[in-house]
Design a protein around this nucleic acid. Sequence first.
DNA 1: CGAACACTTGACAGCCCTCAACGTGAGTGG
DNA 2: CCACTCACGTTGAGGGCTGTCAAGTGTTCG
Lengths: 250, 250
Amino acid sequence: MSDTAFPRVDKRVLADDGDALHFCSTCAFSQACLSQGMDKSALMDLHVLVEHVGPLHAGDHVFREGDPFDAIAAVRAGTVKTYVIDADGHEHVLGFHLPGEVIGLNAIDEAHYPCNAVALDTVMLCRFSFPKISVLATRVPGLQQHLFRLLSRDIGNAALLAGDWSADQRMAAFLVGLSRRLAARGFSADRFQLTMARTDIANYLRLAPETVSRVLKRFQDDGLLKVDRRELELVRRDQLEALAAPILRH
Amino acid sequence: MSDTAFPRVDKRVLADDGDALHFCSTCAFSQACLSQGMDKSALMDLHVLVEHVGPLHAGDHVFREGDPFDAIAAVRAGTVKTYVIDADGHEHVLGFHLPGEVIGLNAIDEAHYPCNAVALDTVMLCRFSFPKISVLATRVPGLQQHLFRLLSRDIGNAALLAGDWSADQRMAAFLVGLSRRLAARGFSADRFQLTMARTDIANYLRLAPETVSRVLKRFQDDGLLKVDRRELELVRRDQLEALAAPILRH
DNA sequence: CGAACACTTGACAGCCCTCAACGTGAGTGG
DNA sequence: CCACTCACGTTGAGGGCTGTCAAGTGTTCG
């Protein structure tokens, strides 16, 4: 049996935060609740539906490839890495998921998780039973629409790094993308911690770890950024944006 | 104004094929209708909803990047290529869409099509207004579930070619994938026509057109396949599958 | 028949991977 | 407090895959 947080029975449930109208302000569904006209009764239904899971610690798995799919989850705190191991034993990182982002959407089709998900630091999750949220979505059009949009967005995101970009472009796009997503959640856009190892970045960008090191060093030598271990400061955001522009497309 | 089939008013509507219970046997939604327990009344609703568009001819656009999104479409016949033009003017092919497959799903999030879609040969489409099919999906859980699965599947597909695979692996995965999809629609798995140019394949696999030529030639010299212009025969499917295995993953 | 286009073939170079060695910081036990 | 260990990260040298450039061939269409 996989030692994951989802299939296990003894998941830790925290029910102490938020009331019916203001719970999960950092949640991926809060915007849907507030803006798409979800009424008080629907909000209560979603509140009852959610299970708060965590804290998970670095190295803990949320789910593993092949686990039966029964729930999606919104990251509330920390970073989750999704990845697969290919036939040659090499790791491919599919994505890093920050607070407010949803994992598990790519499992709907096959009814099994097609990848692994692991916590990179201390992670808190909101778990949504997919059968239950689907039923709720039929009664709450705003929620259905939000799910459609989340799924649609992931299609675009998955295609972003598929191009044959240079190592510099990939690294710039990664850093700028990270910065934008952090900023959207209220974190600093110019100074932040890399929660993942160089090897993880390399496996995400499809580069060798050595190349990641070299590019970061060159970016620093060129004054584009300052990097100290996993501490990062974007100095010349404009130049990084310019490098990343063909990938991020806006 | 874009000269596309969707936004235009004068789309050709064909209502001559199929009755209420058997229409669109090649349609991407037929499985949903039949297997997910869609009742007769729901089927009628879907029948009323669909608009048959076409025939489009090679070079005709279904939609263009930036067009306002209002509908998804199932390919009924022919091949549709989706692509974007990057800041440097280079074309990136996002995918080739065969009969039974759905285009436009990646447009839901931004409410505008994020890419272009063009017919590679004579194409017939089933157009579904997205607002309307969404409403119908709230009444027909099987349809909602089918839409979720279609979206989820595209996330996985978009990630397939993202790895740093060799030219041989990419080409093998492309051919095997094409063969499987054609076979699933009742076409021959071992002999088929490439409906796209070498350049299109190259822009899809992120290779140079010259590399596509060279790999195809080498595959032919090694007895893996026979290729004559756009006519293709897979001779050693097992070896191609082996090459593609790490990418296709099953 | 000529032009445009798609495709093929060849020579060469560059980017990045591989392999190897070294440096560094955190945690551990003495 | 210090030596040790180990994972992580950096730096250097060399080579292979594939892109680029160029020229040539074949086909379609006006």
